[in-house]
Design a protein around this nucleic acid. Structure first.
Length: 369
DNA sequence: GATCAAGTTCATCTTACATCA
DNA sequence: GGTGATGTAAGATGAACTTGA
């Protein structure tokens, strides 16, 4: 963890550091020049902070703005590692059809049931054919399977257009290609306009059961090997390509969510440190006033702030004592309270605000020439 | 060649609002 | 004026696609 704190002219002291952090190390940083405050934050990768998700609903209006800023490629660097997957397992309704399913690789319990009892999104002919094609070693690249998926999808829709199809999905999202009528009028009109082959991009909403099942499998493995993908696709009556895309999108959503949580966390860190900086400024002004009123007061050696590598707390290093020749002396107040950094879910992230011994920092941060 | 992340496209859904009978 | 039905635009969501590594 790196932390730089500059009182006074922030740009002089840590400007270079901030630039390097921003450009090269992709560190999140916050600057507040109006306060003469400069801060660089870098958090190690092994910090678990699931508790933060409880707070992310607060201050939502401001979050939108800041989250957009932090969603830049630089800000998306994995500064912190959060586990966004819900720890609590999804409640499984005994009557839910999802429970009738067994994960193909047999790790979710109840294995071996197969797809029995799962009666949504059935593609009786086309899907099986496509799955076989993929199983035979066909590429799952977009150029192959994706294009063919359009054709297969549209073939289904066209076959169903013979009946009076008006609406494909119900509002609850429980679309079932095998049970519900598929989009008819709009699809057919679009297809005739867009593509001479009648193969336009047709989107399908996965049913709740399918999504739930994929979600469960995602909890087990957020990536799939080809065997798992094929088995899952077969069990859900989806094409392997669909399963693959779903997992890709799911990983992207997880990452996006994590970025939002990170943004929220860093925002709170910034607020805390800003408040601390404000307090220190006030204290500095008081000491300056005291010094000016009594010039023989505060005849102390110059002091710089350093970070203790072991406890990552602010330490003071006294250099060049004006009246002696002793070497630099570093003093660090090591807190014996292991809970002194609690409260944020990220230990040691608040070097200031969680230390009850304010005097430790205040007396060491105010020495000036 | 397969896979993945990142970014994008686009169909669909949701919601708020306006209009009309 | 209140109410319900209908239409529409804007935003959100998610499946599918493209590109580059």
């Amino acid at each position: 963890m790196e932390l730089g704190l500059s009182l006074g002219d922030a740009s002089k002291t840590f400007g270079t550091f901030m630039e390097k952090s921003h450009d090269r190390h992709h560190n999140h940083h916050v600057t507040n020049k109006s306060l003469g405050f400069c801060m660089g934050l870098s958090i190690g990768p092994n910090v678990n902070n699931t508790k933060e998700t409880d707070q992310q609903d607060e201050d939502h209006d401001h979050d939108d703005e800041e989250s957009k800023k932090l969603k830049s490629p630089e800000a998306e660097a994995p500064i912190v590692q959060l586990d966004l997957l819900p720890n609590t397992p999804v409640q499984r309704n005994p009557s839910s059809s999802a429970q009738l399913l067994a994960f193909p690789w047999g790790q979710m319990g109840g294995g071996g049931v197969g797809g029995r009892g799962f009666d949504v999104n059935k593609f009786p002919l086309v899907v099986d054919h496509q799955a076989e094609t993929d199983q035979d070693g066909a590429s799952s690249s977009p150029n192959n399977s994706a294009a063919s998926s359009f054709q297969t999808d549209f073939c289904i829709y066209n076959n169903n257009n013979n009946s009076n199809n008006k609406r494909d999905f119900d509002s609850s999202g429980s679309a079932a290609l095998g049970n519900h009528d598929l989009e008819g009028e709009r699809a057919s009109s679009r297809n005739s306009d867009d593509d001479e082959n009648g193969c336009t991009r047709k989107k399908l909403r996965l049913s709740k059961d399918q999504s739930a099942f994929l979600e469960e499998s995602f909890k087990e493995h957020n990536t799939l090997n080809p065997k798992q993908k094929l088995a899952l696709a077969k069990q859900l009556n989806l094409r392997p390509r669909q399963v693959e895309v779903w997992f890709q999108n799911r990983r992207a959503r997880t990452k996006l969510k994590q970025t939002e949580v990170d943004c929220e966390y860093l925002k709170r860190c910034c607020e805390t440190l800003t408040e601390e900086n404000r307090r220190l400024h006030k204290e500095l002004q008081e000491l300056r006033a005291l010094k000016s009123s009594n010039p023989f007061y505060m005849q102390l050696p110059a002091t710089t702030l350093t970070m203790c590598p072991s406890c990552e707390r602010v330490a003071t290093t006294t250099t060049n004592p004006p009246t002696t020749t002793t070497t630099a002396v570093a003093t660090t107040t090591h807190s014996t309270d292991p809970t002194s950094n609690k409260g944020s879910g990220r230990p040691r992230f608040y070097p200031f605000s969680h230390n009850p011994n304010r005097g430790h920092q205040s007396t060491t941060s105010t020495s000036e020439k």
